[in-house]
Each structure stands twice: as structure tokens, then as C-alpha cells.
Design a protein around this nucleic acid. Structure first.
Length: 817
DNA sequence: TACAGTGCTTTTTTT
DNA sequence: AAGCACTGTA
């Protein structure tokens, strides 16, 4: 028996040893999915399948990188580098780089990220004279994106009766027009957005039989990770690619399907057995990750959902601790509690920072945790939010490079044409756009012939200088490498000097970011592998811009269209390849995971990861489940799967926390505990830090209410008990209140017992002077109503709790008079 | 044309 | 709270 099969259970072995024919692996959380996938690929290679003939698709770059490393480790050679392994988007981008000319796109097509795409939409809404309040870029983009992910073209969109009716009903009948204009504009700009990478790949296979046959023959074995998260476009592509050999292996867990908002259809995995004859199905049900308590809770949660593939996860691990339920007064206290607990666990149970993860539903929640951790001096890493490449200064700099590679890229041109300022203002830009649209040529083509299109005087001179400058950069690409060109561009445009002269804290940070970017380009040019990581936070490279340019590594191929053969395709170190690559990198891809830091991220971002200790934060109604996702059973079930995902990230210990109130857009809102908490059986819960009442305010004794809320007796005596067991926590006097209650006198809420007939009133006409009752803050008088009509905010002076700003869209108020 | 000040909107998850 | 668009002034 081969070595690599040792340590696999029977099911896992079965999956690994299955070679030919369709295979579906239903892999429960923590059941060794990645191990099976990587071992199976290694096995295929061990029995003689050429690495060049294996395609493995994942959803994150990190997963791809990890798989490649593990396969290399198993095989002990470098063959794994020949695998076609990566995210759907990056693999397709790589293929399309060779094939785009068939579709009328340049090889050096630009990839538009979400910001670029929204910016195009915004411009189009403006050009079509539509109301931008009504046609918000976000809304329109999502609608278009959903269409594309379902392989609906702009033409089909406008001609589809049902779709048109739907848009009519939502009073946005022009979306189809915008879609058409958007598609046309992207094409004219030589640009594909994220969804296009899937759509164009599909069209390539569908309309070019020789391309289809080429890739069908090439990819004899196809493996898809996280199959439950594939959308229609991805599904159809896989079906086409796999049709010849039918060696399609999909791995997934319907219980972890959490991307339907991106067009994923759970049907893909539920129906897989109908897509091919003779599908082999293997279920991996033994969990190697979590304690029994954690797993039991997970099983209980998911049992509330309907329509799943039947499976029962079990484990031979220890029972473990109960899940700790935490109630705090505010979001800041939640942060404090978590930071305190991490400190405590580190000292008592010898955990390291990297053993902890704080997971939440929305990125906005990270702030309270950041602050608390910083105050405690605990190192942390935040994932998500704006990625490195989305920072303004980076994007501006990259826009220069984008223009060199693809001058038709209008979005990039608009960013840089007057930055740094060169006297080509908004009026001139608008005129250029008008001319471009009128003659259906690109923005750049208008610039090149500016005089013909009525640009005059000083502006004409500026435009002509700009064109000459860009052309001089472009010609440099023929004999200098990407790094040297980038450095040169920074110098010539004064771009870097401007940032260098800005000595404010942000200015210095921006300058350092630019250095980091140049560093990453250098690594790309010199690097042996196509994978690379930016050293975040590490010393910034001081050479480069400030020094004279480094020695040019001459690359004759720079800027020219690369041959679509795999050798050159793989070693393509051109600027164009670099730009396409980085657009598909996410924040997580630039951060190393093994640093000894506490990890903060959304639950979505945490899928596929595991941690010894997990804090599932913000378990509150309207936050989690999110208010946006409780309108249908499907949405709610997806939120529940999300809860399942967060619970199953934990190996040993799990805390579930919620706050009674938190700030949202500057004003305070109250939330009930999440309904999901009630789905956890009591026997697995440790509620000693959850306060006495499971529901706010109700069921408390008069004594407790007088103590100022439910943090009175129970929480405190429970802490005492804990302290008896573990000794006093560090840095806290024995008689001090538990730190996480963190009740500052001015923020302490005097709990109010709502009147028996309390029922929220319609507050749409609320005016100053009216008397109201608030469920928690009690009686008060409206001082003023401000904010907008859509989002009114009332300033209310409460008898017992002072003045508070309350958002009327969220608050429950009873109008008394 | 450029910038500063002001008021208004933001309400999820991500390749 | 924060970012963005709009307005008014230099």
C-alpha cells in the first residue's frame, strides 16, 4: 500500500482510490476534505496521470495554494507545479489571456474589479440621464451580476418578459438598457469584470468547438472544491469541460452553502447524480476537528433546515467544554469581553494568539474588537474590508500601468488623466466621453486625436503632452521589465514625489504602500513561481523610486501577445499578466496565516478554516440572521447554514456572544438575541455569562432591575466561581467588577420594565414635544427629529437615561402623547 | 479649476 | 462614524 494512504479512513480511501468516472464526495465539516482531495490528486499522479492533464478548481487562492503545497509534500517532487490548480476566476483568466482574441478582446484585457464595474455603471446611468438615486450602482450591479451568473446576456435580459416585468415591478425598467450599455462599454474598454471571466469562458467553449475540444482533451481529470457554492455559469462550464472524459470529481457540503447571493445554487450539488450516469457517491461523516459538544450543537442547528443530503456527522473526539453564551451591554463591551477572555485563556490554558478567531457576520463589526485588542496589546490580523489593491493610491498607480497595457481602459484613464493635476478637468473629460460615445471609439482614441474633437487651447496642449508621455512609457515596455517601467512611471509623473512630500500620517502610509506595491512588482518579475505574497507590515523597501532604477532584466517578450502554449503561458512575467493576477487577489491572499495573531474575519471568509478557540460574535436579530436575509425561508436557511459554519470552525472552545445595543451609523440601536441561540439545546450551553434573562428586560426581579440590568448577581457570582477554579484573572483586582461588563457610569442603562400594553407605534410622523415610551430606556420626550426622510433620527430625552439619538427605522417606540 | 465646508446616505456576505 | 456629492468661494 502506498504511504500516502496511511492515516485515511475507509471512506476517505474509497474516494481517493476512485480513478475513472464521476465522483461526488459529500464532506461534512472537518471530515478531512482537503486531505482527500489532495491525496486523490497525488494518487492520480502516482499511477501515471500527467499533472498537465489535471484541473482543480477552488474558490479561494489560499485553498489552491494550500492544495498545491500539500500535493508537493506528498509526492516529494516538483511535479505539482504543472497542475492546473486555482480559483475559477484565476484559471479562466489565464486561459482567456490566450483565447480572448477569438472573442474579440485583446489578450491584455483588463479585469474590472467591483469598484471599476460600479464606476462604469455610474457613468452610464449618468449618460442615460437616469436618476442615480433610483438606479444606485450597487443595485444595478447586483442585478447585472446575477444575470451574468445565470448566463443571461444583455440581449436576453431585455427580451425576457418575466425579467422585464420584475424590473417594472421594482420600478427600475431601465436596468436592461444599462446592462446593454455596460456590456458594450466593457467590450469597448477591452475589459472583463469578474462575472465576465466565467461568461466569456463559457462562450469560448460553447461557440468555438476547437477550443472546447482542446480543453476537453487537456483536462482529463477535473476536481471541484466547494461544489455547493458553484453558480450556473460555473456549472455549465464544468459540464462542457467534463463531457469528454466524465472524470469529474466534486467535493462539497450542502450544509455549508453560503454564497447564494453570488448566484450559487445548491441544486448543483443536490442534482449532481442526475448529470452523469453511474455517479459514485462517498460520504465523509467522521469529524476530526471538533469536540462532541461543538459537533452536537452544529448537528442540532442544521437539523432545523429542510431539504438536505442526509448525513450524520460524528466524532471520536472528547466531549469538551460547553459552549459559552455571553451577553454584553454594548458592542464595545463585547469587544472587551473577548479581548479579556483571550488574555485569560492564553495565561491559563497556554493558548497562543493564533489559536483564536473572532468571527462575525458583517465587516463593520470588527471595530470594537480591534480597539479592545489593541488596548490589551494583543496582536491581531483583520481579513476582509478593502484589499491592498483597492486603496486609492495603489489603484491610481496601477491605473497608469493598466493604461500602458491596455490604453482602451477608460476607467483607468479617467483616474489618471488629471492626477497628478495637469489641467484636464471635469469639463474636458465630459467632452471627451461625449465624443467617444458619439463615434463609438475609445476614450484613448479621442485623446490621440483631441484636436479633431474640438479640444482647444491650454487643455489641448495638456492632452497632447499626456498622450506623448503615455506613449513613451508604452515603448519602454519593449525593452525594460515591468518593475523598471513602473518605477519610471512613478518618477516621470511626479506621482511618487507628491506622496513623498505629504508628511501627514496618512501621507507617509500612502508612500509606504506605494513602495510595497513596487516591491511586489519586483517580486513578480524576479520570482520563480507565479504565487507571491505581499509582506504586509514588514519593512518597506526603501530602494526603488529613490535610487536610480535597478538593472533592467531584459525580457524581449514584454508587452507582446504571449503565445497560448502552456510553457510561455505559465512563465508569463509581463506587466499584463501581473495586472490580471493582482485583480483576482483578495485581502486574505496578501496575509500570511501562520503569524501568531488573533484572526478577525467574517464567517464567509472563515469557511474552510479551523481554530482552537472561536468567538462567534454579534448573535443578534437583524444582524445575524441579517435583516436583509429573513424575507424568505431560503434566505433564513442560508443564514442558519452560516451559523453552522461558524460553529464548526471551532476545535476546542466556542463562545457565542451578543450585545443588547450597538452603534450603527452613529446611533444606538437595540437588538434581541438571535433566534439561532434558542436552537441550541440547553444541555450544551454554559450560560453563566449570559445574564439572568434570556430576553431583554423581561423576567428580571425588581432587585436585579435596580442593580442596573441583568449584570447584577448572576454574572458576577459566576465569575467568582470561575475564579475559584482558575485563580484570579491577570491584571484585575479581586473585588473589581468583571472587566467585560465595562459599564461606564454614563452609558449604564437603567433597565425599564415596559408597560403591559407596550406595542410599537408608527413613528413616521413623530415630532418634537411628543412623549414616548422606549422598551429599554423608558419614558421620554422627543427633543427633535433630524436625519432624512428615509432615515429619520430622533433625539429623545429620557427620564432615567438622558438624551439619546434613536434611529426610527429600527427603534420600537410607543407614542404616548 | 480647485478646494473647503456642509449635508446626506449608508443596511450583508466576495471572486 | 464616515465617505461622498454638492455648493460656494478664491
Amino acid at each position: 500500500m502506498q504511504d500516502y494512504l496511511k492515516g485515511l479512513n475507509e471512506r476517505q480511501k474509497e474516494a481517493v482510490l476512485h480513478v475513472d468516472g464521476p465522483l461526488m464526495i459529500i464532506a461534512g465539516a472537518g471530515s478531512g476534505k482537503t486531505k482527500v482531495l489532495t491525496t486523490r490528486i497525488a494518487h492520480l499522479m502516482a499511477i501515471g496521470v500527467d499533472a498537465f492533464n489535471i484541473l482543480a478548481l477552488t474558490f479561494t487562492n489560499k485553498a489552491a495554494r494550500e492544495m498545491k503545497e500539500r500535493i508537493e509534500h506528498i509526492l516529494g517532487n516538483n511535479e505539482a507545479r504543472n497542475l492546473y490548480i486555482g480559483t475559477f476566476h484565476s484559471v479562466f483568466a489565464r486561459i482567456l489571456r490566450g483565447e480572448a482574441p477569438r472573442l474579440g478582446y485583446p489578450s491584455n484585457f483588463t479585469i474590472y474589479d467591483t469598484d471599476d464595474a460600479k464606476s462604469v455603471i455610474k457613468a452610464i446611468v449618468h449618460e442615460l440621464n437616469l436618476d442615480d438615486k433610483h438606479y444606485k450602482p450597487n443595485t444595478v450591479y447586483n442585478r447585472i451580476s446575477n444575470a451574468k451568473n445565470a448566463l443571461v446576456t444583455a440581449q436576453e435580459y431585455v427580451n425576457d418578459y418575466a425579467i422585464q416585468q420584475e424590473d417594472l415591478r421594482s420600478n427600475r425598467p431601465a436596468i436592461g438598457k444599462i446592462f446593454e450599455a455596460y456590456a458594450k462599454r466593457c467590450f469597448r474598454n477591452g475589459a472583463m469584470d469578474f462575472d465576465d471571466l466565467l461568461v466569456k469562458m463559457y462562450e469560448l467553449l460553447k461557440y468555438f468547438p476547437e477550443a472546447l475540444s482542446k480543453y476537453q482533451r487537456k483536462f482529463k481529470y477535473i476536481l471541484i472544491d466547494e461544489y455547493q457554492d458553484t453558480n450556473t455559469a460555473q456549472y455549465e462550464i464544468i459540464k462542457l469541460l467534463g463531457a469528454m472524459h466524465e472524470n469529474v470529481c466534486v467535493v462539497g457540503d450542502d450544509a455549508q452553502s453560503i454564497y447564494s447571493f453570488r448566484g450559487a445554487t445548491i441544486q448543483n450539488i443536490l442534482q449532481f447524480q442526475k448529470d452523469y450516469d453511474d455517479v459514485k457517491v462517498v460520504k465523509l461523516e467522521q469529524n476530526y476537528r471538533s469536540t462532541q459538544n461543538i459537533l452536537n450543537v452544529a448537528n442540532e442547528i442544521i437539523s432545523n433546515n429542510k431539504g438536505q443530503i442526509e448525513k450524520t456527522l460524528f466524532t471520536e473526539n472528547v466531549t469538551g467544554e460547553k459552549i459559552k453564551l455571553i451577553r454584553t451591554i454594548s458592542d464595545n463591551d463585547e469587544g472587551k469581553f473577548v479581548a479579556d477572555t483571550i488574555q485569560e485563556q492564553k495565561l491559563r490554558n497556554h493558548f497562543h494568539n493564533k489559536d483564536f478567531a473572532i468571527l462575525y457576520r458583517t465587516n463593520a463589526q470588527s471595530r470594537a474588537f480591534e480597539e479592545a485588542l489593541r488596548r490589551m496589546g494583543i496582536a491581531y490580523t483583520i481579513y476582509g474590508g478593502i484589499s491592498f489593491y483597492q486603496r486609492k493610491e495603489i489603484k491610481d498607480y496601477i491605473s497608469y500601468l493598466r493604461v500602458l497595457v491596455n490604453p482602451d481602459d477608460e476607467e483607468a484613464l479617467k483616474r489618471i488623466i488629471n492626477y497628478p493635476a495637469r489641467g484636464i478637468g471635469k469639463t474636458s473629460v465630459d467632452r471627451i466621453i461625449l465624443a467617444a460615445n458619439e463615434h463609438n471609439i475609445s476614450f484613448w482614441q479621442v485623446l490621440e486625436r483631441a484636436r479633431e474633437f474640438g479640444i482647444r487651447g491650454a487643455t489641448l496642449e495638456s492632452v497632447e503632452n499626456f498622450v506623448v508621455m503615455i506613449k513613451s512609457f508604452t515603448s519602454m515596455l519593449n525593452h525594460k521589465n515591468a518593475y523598471d517601467v513602473a518605477v519610471h512611471v512613478g518618477k516621470q509623473t511626479n506621482f511618487v514625489r507628491e506622496l513623498f512630500n505629504d508628511k501627514s500620517a496618512e501621507g507617509v502610509a500612502r508612500y509606504e504602500n506605494i513602495q510595497e506595491l513596487l516591491n511586489s512588482i519586483k517580486e513578480w518579475v524576479e520570482g520563480s513561481e507565479e504565487e507571491f505574497i505581499i509582506n504586509d507590515g514588514e519593512e518597506a523597501i526603501t530602494e526603488g523610486i529613490t535610487n536610480e532604477s535597478a538593472d533592467g532584466i531584459t525580457d524581449q517578450n514584454e508587452g507582446s501577445v504571449p503565445a497560448p502554449e502552456e510553457t510561455s503561458e505559465r512563465q508569463d512575467k509581463s506587466l499584463g499578466a501581473y495586472l490580471q493576477q493582482i485583480t483576482l487577489l483578495t485581502d486574505a491572499d496578501n496575509k500570511s496565516t501562520d503569524a501568531d495573531t488573533v484572526k478577525l474575519m467574517t464567517i464567509h471568509a472563515a469557511k474552510g478554516l479551523e481554530f482552537s478557540c472561536v468567538f462567534a460574535a454579534g448573535l443578534e436579530e437583524s444582524l445575524f440572521p441579517n435583516a436583509m436575509s429573513i424575507n424568505t425561508r431560503e434566505e433564513l436557511e442560508e443564514e442558519r447554514r452560516l451559523f453552522y459554519v461558524v460553529v464548526t470552525r471551532a476545535k476546542q472552545r466556542l463562545w457565542i456572544s451578543y450585545a443588547n445595543s450597538r452603534y450603527r451609523f452613529g446611533s444606538l440601536i437595540q437588538n434581541e438575541p438571535s433566534r439561532f441561540i434558542n436552537e441550541i439545546p440547553e444541555e450544551y450551553l454554559d450560560k453563566s455569562n449570559a445574564g439572568s434573562a434570556s430576553r431583554s428586560g423581561f423576567g428580571m426581579s425588581a432587585f436585579e432591575r435596580m442593580r442596573g440590568g441583568s449584570f447584577g448577581g448572576n454574572a458576577r457570582s459566576a465569575t467568582r466561581m470561575a475564579e475559584k477554579r482558575y485563580g484570579p484573572p491577570p491584571g484585575r483586582r479581586d473585588d473589581a467588577a468583571p472587566a467585560y461588563t465595562g459599564v461606564k457610569p454614563q452609558t449604564r442603562v437603567k433597565e425599564h420594565q415596559p408597560s403591559a400594553d407596550f406595542a410599537p407605534s408608527d413613528t413616521s410622523g413623530l415630532q418634537a414635544g411628543q412623549k414616548v415610551e422606549h422598551q429599554k430606556f423608558g419614558f421620554g420626550e422627543v427633543v427633535k427629529v433630524e436625519g432624512s426622510r428615509q432615515n429619520p433620527v430622533a433625539m429623545i430625552k429620557f427620564e432615567n437615561n438622558g438624551e439619546k439619538k434613536i434611529m426610527l427605522n429600527y427603534a420600537r417606540l410607543r407614542i404616548i402623547g
